[in-house]
Design a protein around this nucleic acid. Structure first.
Lengths: 315, 315
DNA sequence: GCCGCGCGTGAATCTTAATTCAAATGCGCA
DNA sequence: TGCGCATTTGAATTAAGATTCACGCGCGGC
């Protein structure tokens, strides 16, 4: 009935509100309408399409992929960075994104567990600014990997992160893999090691790399922790990747091998109890590993690159 | 620095807020950000153009013209209806728009003055629905024009409006123009006339037609209130139009003629003290008259048609 | 013709969002 | 190398906006 007049009024109010940026109380005065009426007119204007709100996706960001991954793999959050040709560069991008993520979302209440050894996590620490909001405790949740020297690198990573966040570091002064279950049990009794492992179940935010089974360069360079035969065994059991040196297959199920008992670090089960587990990984080589991690639900936040994201959504 | 990451975050938050329609507290939980931060990210997303809000103007409405007229003539409000070929039809449109305007913006606190005689105001009352929000007092602010019969029409208009608004009517039982100043003074002493005129300065919303000097058909039909010579006199003084039978020239200045003292109704000065004075008029013939009314500031709300609006903006 | 029913309204209320404020920090500059 | 300056942040506060509620009304069924 009063169709056209209503439209006119809706339009007028919408323009005052959205274009002239007048507040509802002001419009109320000017048009002699109650604030309720204005609010209702505005919502009808939105419904009816008189007012259109669009979110323009800036190039280089991929919210659709992020949302699709979240949906598909029940993730809490997901960050997809732009892919570039150079794999090194992708790692840097991932690191920067991860750094930003941690800087913006980690607070003084958090206990951040960081799993050495991962190129992406290293890049993250490199990209991080100092003086973000302070005070998160940083905990090393995996022993150093490879030669004793590399072990030091691992603790350095933890230390640097703690320093950058103005927080306190708790180190795990032990190798990530030892020769036998027995050796591990002995090390777990070490005072400092025990101190770190006790904190495992207080972790609120875990940062983990995702390893591909085909040995990554870094692992290799760190001294070939795993022998050829060990890798073969893993391969025969269908292992596609690892988190904290705990391996899983493409479906995400843990692969039980003797290796399991030789790792000093958080177990997958412990990880699963953590509120936010952030996996940082990208690149073609890692796709299957990431898929396994996602399928097993071992991470609930993923930071990856566009191409990998697309591959993860295809299969 | 963190440029791209910021963009990503802004986009993500914007999508959650505007597309998924999550509230800020919900986003806060999901993204581990404070509500303040989310609010700030959203306003930056709007500023930076990631979020774009547009108001689509429905066809048949002309907010740009309305705003231009408001700006140019210092109006409180303005309504521009679509122009059609048929002048009768325009009057009906104006009436409907005016009816809607009164229905939506007049409340129980209002004292509505209505100036008979105007085809547009007649159309307004015809278009009005019963049962709008109630209780405004309706006051006739101009005597009946023309033959004693027409006088009755005028009071009917007032009565009908009052009835439609569930309000009380106060009539002005007198002719709009009498033969002499003396005759007017006598009539002003009439008890009922005096009752009405006493209310003039309590009017909060005046509804007036705008007359062109070239006698409108209605005036003519109502019995040629003004003689040829009177019209000539007005013409010689540059009168272009009238409100409540008070004439003004193109610049809006009142035209002082003996007619002035023979009118029974609100004066322009009284009208100027009213909070909202709504002029309802359109059509080519009336353009100059409307311009005068606007120039003189005798109305502060205008309801007109598109073509007239455009003409008013040209000169 | 009278009685509910549903719609639409404004005032009050409650939710949501913006802003203020104080604290903490990096940075430029002496 | 220290000293403000300008940022940036979250908690608290204030402002703004959505919704609830009660009411009044027209309208259609009985």
């Amino acid at each position: 009935m009063a169709r056209i007049d209503e439209l006119r009024l809706m339009t007028q109010v919408a323009r005052m509100y959205y274009e002239q940026e007048l507040r509802q109380p002001e419009i109320m005065k000017r048009l002699n309408l109650s604030q309720s009426t204005i609010s209702r007119l505005l919502s009808r204007a939105r419904e009816s399409g008189i007012v259109r709100i669009t979110v323009n996706v800036p190039s280089g960001t991929h919210p659709e992929l992020e949302e699709a991954l979240q949906e598909r793999y029940r993730l809490k959050q997901c960050v997809v960075v732009e892919s570039v040709d150079d794999e090194e560069q992708i790692i840097r991008e991932l690191g920067e994104a991860a750094a930003f993520f941690v800087e913006t979302t980690a607070g003084p209440g958090d206990v951040i567990g960081i799993s050495s050894w991962s190129a992406a996590l290293l890049a993250m620490v490199d990209a991080m600014h100092h003086g973000a909001r302070g005070g998160a405790r940083v905990l090393q949740i995996l022993g150093g990997v490879g030669s004793p020297g590399a072990e030091v690198h691992a603790t350095q990573l933890t230390r640097r992160l703690a320093h950058l966040l103005n927080g306190e570091a708790t180190l795990l002064p032990a190798p990530g893999v030892v020769g036998s279950r027995k050796a591990r049990d002995v090390l777990l009794e070490d005072r400092f090691v025990a101190e770190a492992t006790r904190l495992f179940d207080q972790v609120t935010l875990a940062l983990v790399g995702i390893g591909a089974v085909e040995p990554s360069r870094l692992l290799a360079e760190s001294g070939n922790v795993f022998s050829k035969s060990e890798l073969n065994t893993l391969g025969r059991h269908g292992a596609v990747g690892d988190i904290c040196l705990h391996f899983f297959n493409e479906q995400g199920n843990p692969v039980a091998t003797p290796l399991h008992d030789r790792v000093i670090g958080m177990s997958l089960e412990q990880l699963r109890r953590v509120g936010r587990v952030v996996g940082v990984a990208g690149g073609k080589r890692k796709t299957v590993a990431i898929k396994g991690a996602l399928a097993g639900g071992w991470i609930n936040i993923l930071i990856t690159d566009r191409n990998t994201a697309e591959r993860l959504l295809k299969g």
